[in-house]
Structure formats: structure tokens, C-alpha cells
Design a protein around this nucleic acid. Structure first.
Length: 427
RNA sequence: GUGGGUAUAGUUCAGUGGCAGAACGCCAGACUGUGGCUCUGGAUGUCGUGGGUUCGACCCCCACUACCCACCCCA
């Protein structure tokens, strides 16, 4: 079709019946996260570009290449120009809000969750869009409130496992690593850099680039020829300081105790600069190249990096698009059907139909109303196609006698029912 | 940002340098108050957009755009 306006590249419409799955996921998330005492937070889609430079990291691809950013022209000429950006992720916004609203003055740990669109200017493919949706949660607080406790890490991971189970998703894998803290990361970086110096010329071109820009990423390389070299590189686990090591051990101990299966992946790294210590990823085979359903980890220095108080935290982001995709391929979702299709038979039946529909809906039945100009045959056909369980025939005879014809569309059985009996007969 | 593939009916897809096709879906009738099955009939469309070659292009060539897959990156 020429000349028609379509959804812009990399964006898409979420349509019925898929939106049923989206709602199911989100409803499940809200119910479950509430059990863990998380509360929803909604931050703006637009933020100051500086926020992402300082948190996600200036050198990351996300910030350096993939941001939708522009100069704000609405400000007075006397003011300094401000650059705005569509958020590429939501943790930075949540931590900004935590700082801005002085949440560290509130008692205990803050537990937030969010559901919303994120934006990255990438070339799309399966499971990757320029506007995509993330469901995330963050636990932030002062150390005194227990924010650094490995119990928090384990609780979050257990919550995620519970979520995926509740959604009916099978076949996921939890990969776990510790990427160290500000104490031991520089030492490891140095060791990695010097080890790379000798071997990097034998590695793929991407790794040669990464060795310069982001050495940790070399560990993530998937080129087969590079694997023996990567095996020989220093491992982060050998450079963890005492605190980080016991912290990570404790996380694993709790996970095992609550029966959450995981695999250690010493090569697992995170793409955002703010991550520290516990890092994790849930993957699923149904997703093709974009096999990470969710990722997360600790970010103990993020608040300070944004000019806030010391407030260690941990969080994750679920790729909702990917989760929905995996669910649709790996679980049967039961969808609630239309309970009653009301077939008004002939002119003048709209009033009675509207009255019945209103009554039945107040009794929490899903009711779809037909057109009085339809012949009965067409009404029943329409009812069947709508997936309705019952058809309620509203004609002159029925209105006269007060006995409505209620037809079970699956069995073909038809009974007469007074308006008060209808609900009981369809339940 | 890079590479490969695809673009024809509502959908999934065939197709040939010379009349635009199938299946499913949709609409109607057979059946005027009883659906699903069946039968009969019907409507589909600038063959992605723009240009070129040709007597003639849906088909060949070029460009563009979109989508899909992969790289990269990440959720």
C-alpha cells in the first residue's frame, strides 16, 4: 500500500490476541512482586542525557551509538542547552528518583518495580526492537538497612524463578557470576589487559577492538577459534577479594537451599558499566540469537556515581517482548472465552438486549452483544466465531414469556431460562 | 553501523517476458427462529515505491523503502 503511514521502523503494534499474553504476564508480575513487598515506580520516558552517560557509561554501545537524544529547544535562550534522551533502560531513572526524592531517609530497603517501554536505536531482528518493553525491579538502600546482603541477591533470583514458573515457562537457565567490586575489578582489569597483550593479535577483529574499549567483553566472545585463548585468560573469580568471594558464596548457598538451579558462568559479563559483584542472566533456547530473557546484577556504586548518597542496590530487567515470545512458543495459555453472546432476534430487541447484557456483566460474565438486524443463523455463526460458550436468544417469544433460549454452543443443547436463571446455567 | 534473504488477495504462499492464481479466511445463497459439516456463487489486488530495458514488465536491470535472519550489542 503506497502512501500509508505505518509504524516506524523497529517499532510494532501489539495486537489482540497477543495483548492477552502481555496482560497475563503483567498481571502475574504485579501479583507476585507484591508478595515480595515490591512497589511500582513510574519514571519518565524522557530523561537528561547526562543521566545515562554517568550510569550506563559513556563508552558503552548503548550510550555512544544507540540513544535517541536531542537538544531541548523549549528552554530560554539564556539557559544552558540541555540534551534529553529517551531512556534506553530504567535502572538509571529509578536510582535518580531514589536520590531526588530522598528515599534513603525512609526506613528500610526500598523495593521498586517498573513495567514500561525503553528505546534503543538499533537494527531490529528477532527479539530486538527500537521500542521494547522491560519489566524490572530494584532493591536499593543504605548498607545499614541491609542492601548489600547476599540474602537480597538470592531473594531476587528466587523471585525471578518463581515468576517464570508461575508463568508456565519451562526450559530456562540461570547463569551466575560475580564481576567483582571497585576493590578487585581494577586488579583484574590490569591482569586481563596484560594477558591480552600477548595473545590478542591471534584473536578475531572484534576482540582486538574490545581489548581496547572494553576488555571484559572479550570473555563474552563466541568465535570458536578464540575459545582456547579465552580459556587461558585470567578469571575474575581468582581476583575477587575476601568480601566479594564470601558474598558470592553465600548467594549460591541460599539459592541451593531454596532449590533454584543455576550454572556458574565465569565469562558472564554485563554490558552496562554500573554492575558490580553478582551478575546474572536467564536464557531460553527458543529465542534465537537474542537468547537472554532477562539480565541483572548488583550496582553498589551507582547512586554515588549519580551524585547521591551511598546506596548499594541490585536489580534486573526482563525483556518483556522476549519473555512473551518464549511463552507463546513454550506454554499453552488458557484464555477466558466470551461467556454469552446475546442474539437479538429482529427489530426492537435492542432495548431488552442491552438490559440483559448490563445485568449479566454486573455478574462478571463476559458478554458480547449481537446485531438485531442479523438473522438467527448469522447470529449463531457470529457467536461461534467469537468463541462464545453460550448464545442467548432474545426474540419476541422470549420477551413475551420471560423464558430466554440459552444455547450451549459446544454441545448444541438448548434450554429455557428466566433472566435470573441465566447466570447459574452458564457457570 | 555491517552482511544475507524476502516483498503478489485479509492471511500463508505459488506463478509466467503476452488475460492475475491456489488454499484458508471473508460475504451471500441453499436454510425467512438455530451455528460448526456440506454444496453453490461472489468480492478481492496500482503484483512494496520510483526509475530503466522492451512492441509489451508482476517477471529482466538499477535505486529506494519496509520486513525477516544473522553480525554487532543487549533485555
Amino acid at each position: 500500500m503506497a502512501g500509508l503511514i505505518k509504524a516506524v521502523s523497529g517499532t510494532r503494534d501489539l495486537l489482540p490476541p497477543d495483548t492477552e499474553t502481555w496482560n497475563f504476564v503483567e498481571a502475574t508480575v504485579r501479583d507476585l512482586f507484591r508478595l515480595y513487598n515490591f512497589h511500582e515506580i513510574r519514571t519518565p520516558v524522557i530523561e537528561d542525557l547526562q543521566l545515562f552517560r554517568r550510569s550506563v557509561g559513556e563508552e558503552t554501545d548503548i550510550v555512544s551509538k544507540e540513544m535517541f537524544a536531542w537538544e531541548d529547544r523549549a528552554r530560554a535562550a539564556s539557559e544552558k542547552a540541555q540534551w534529553l534522551a529517551l531512556r534506553p533502560e530504567n535502572t538509571a531513572g529509578v536510582v535518580r528518583a531514589y536520590i531526588q526524592h530522598n528515599f534513603h531517609e525512609r526506613p528500610g530497603l526500598q523495593r521498586f518495580y517498573y513495567i514500561g517501554p525503553q528505546f534503543r536505536r538499533e537494527r531490529q531482528q528477532k527479539g530486538r526492537y527500537r521500542q521494547f518493553y522491560q519489566i524490572g525491579a530494584e532493591v536499593i538502600g543504605t548498607t545499614a538497612a541491609g542492601s548489600e546482603s547476599p540474602a537480597v541477591d538470592a531473594e531476587i533470583l528466587e523471585m525471578l524463578a518463581a515468576l517464570l514458573d508461575k508463568l508456565g515457562l519451562t526450559g530456562w537457565t540461570l547463569e551466575l557470576n560475580s564481576v567483582g567490586c571497585s576493590n578487585d575489578r581494577p586488579k583484574f582489569h590490569e591482569a586481563l589487559r596484560s594477558a591480552l597483550k600477548d595473545v590478542v593479535q591471534n584473536m578475531c577483529v572484534d576482540c582486538q577492538r574490545r581489548a581496547e574499549t572494553n576488555p571484559l567483553r572479550v570473555l563474552d566472545c563466541k568465535v570458536p577459534e578464540d575459545q582456547p585463548i579465552i580459556e587461558s585468560l585470567p578469571r575474575l573469580s581468582d581476583y575477587l577479594d575476601e568480601n566479594c568471594r564470601t558474598h558470592f558464596d553465600e548467594v549460591q548457598k541460599i539459592l541451593s537451599a531454596v532449590g533454584i538451579p543455576f550454572v556458574l558462568n565465569y565469562r558472564l559479563v554485563r554490558g552496562l558499566d554500573y554492575y558490580t559483584r553478582t551478575a546474572f542472566e536467564f536464557t531460553h533456547g527458543a529465542l534465537g540469537a537474542q537468547n537472554a530473557i532477562l539480565g541483572g546484577g548488583r550496582y553498589d556504586g551507582l547512586s554515588e556515581a549519580l551524585g547521591g548518597p551511598a546506596a548499594p542496590g541490585i536489580g534486573f530487567a526482563i525483556g518483556e517482548d522476549r519473555l512473551v515470545m518464549a511463552l507463546q512458543e513454550h506454554s499453552k495459555l488458557a484464555q477466558r472465552a466470551v461467556d454469552i453472546y446475546i442474539a437479538p432476534l429482529g427489530a426492537g430487541m435492542n432495548v431488552e438486549t442491552a438490559r440483559l447484557a448490563s445485568e449479566l456483566r454486573r455478574k462478571n460474565l463476559i458478554v458480547s452483544v449481537g446485531d438485531e438486524t442479523f438473522r438467527l443463523k448469522k447470529s449463531l455463526e457470529t457467536a461461534s466465531k467469537a468463541g462464545a460458550r453460550f448464545a442467548l436468544i432474545v426474540g419476541e417469544n422470549e420477551v413475551q414469556s420471560g423464558q430466554f433460549a440459552l444455547k450451549n454452543l459446544a454441545t448444541g443443547e438448548q434450554v429455557a431460562a428466566t433472566r435470573d436463571q441465566i447466570e447459574g446455567k452458564v457457570r
